[in-house]
């Protein structure tokens, strides 16, 4: 009986080349290596476990189907992450069509009330925090942001995209991206400061 090759020590690049030639065993190894990363990205955007699993699996299927288009300009995992982000954005847009615009968003677009209500955080609430604790607090704070604010933060801070790239992905103007990023950062700072206060009290 033929045994499956041990791909655990093979580089991503070599596995990708194999998968591009139709080697599904190589592709499975890529999935095993990067499934947590893709799931985490989907979850950070959707905040729903089932949707994150479904969308990350859909991304892998699309990745396999488009594998010949991957030329290696970025790393394979970056390329796959872009696919899952696009799927999440599509899903979020569909969901948005089914719900009313939030008052918060209207305020953001008109630019007024929200910023007056947020005090400037002077002391750094993340000082002396263990990394795991900081990550847990960031995750908690992300869960409390609107999806527009959360998405723009993820794309700018974690994916390191520029304003214009985010605008293209989110199908909005650069001005809207800047405005959303500004309020998202301010809210994040205030949420982290709130968690610090909770801890102290």
């Amino acid at each position: 009986m033929a045994t499956q090759p041990d791909n655990t020590k093979v580089s991503d690049e070599k596995l990708v080349r194999g998968a591009q030639k139709g080697d599904m065993v190589a592709f499975e190894e890529l999935v095993a290596r990067h499934r947590d990363k893709l799931y985490a990205r989907a979850f950070s955007m959707m905040r729903n476990e089932d949707e994150a699993i479904d969308l990350s699996q859909e991304a892998w299927v699309k990745g396999w189907q488009r594998l010949k288009q991957f030329q290696g300009e970025s790393s394979f995992v970056t390329w796959m992450t872009r696919i899952v982000i696009n799927l999440c954005l599509d899903q979020l847009r569909k969901q948005k069509r089914h719900r009313a615009e939030s008052i918060e968003l209207l305020e953001e677009e008109s630019g007024g009330v929200e910023r007056q209500m947020l005090p400037v955080v002077a002391a750094n609430p993340t000082e002396r925090l263990e990394r795991a604790e900081l990550r847990a607090r960031i995750d908690r704070a992300l869960g409390q942001l609107s999806y527009e604010h959360r998405t723009v933060l993820i794309l700018h801070e974690f994916e390191e995209l520029e304003y214009k790239e985010i605008a293209k992905k989110m199908q909005c103007s650069i001005g809207t991206v800047m405005s959303r990023l500004f309020y998202a950062r301010r809210k994040m700072a205030n949420l982290l400061a709130g968690f610090k206060r909770e801890e102290l009290s």
């Binding site: 999935v31 095993a32 499934r35 947590d36 799931y39 985490a40 979850f43 950070s44 476990e49 699993i53 990350s56 699996q57 400037v120 955080v121 002077a122 750094n124 993340t126 990394r131 900081l134 990550r135 847990a136 960031i138 995750d139 992300l142 933060l153 801070e157 974690f158 500004f182 950062r185 301010r186 994040m188 700072a189 982290l192």
Partner: peptide, 25 residues
């Protein structure tokens, strides 16, 4: 404040693990 928020996020993306086995996924 903006700088603090940016620095806090940089490199501190929440780490999550898929709640399904490799084979099932």
């Amino acid at each position: 404040e903006l700088k603090m928020a940016r620095t806090a996020l940089a490199g501190n993306e929440p780490e999550l693990h898929l709640p399904e086995s490799r084979e099932f996924y």
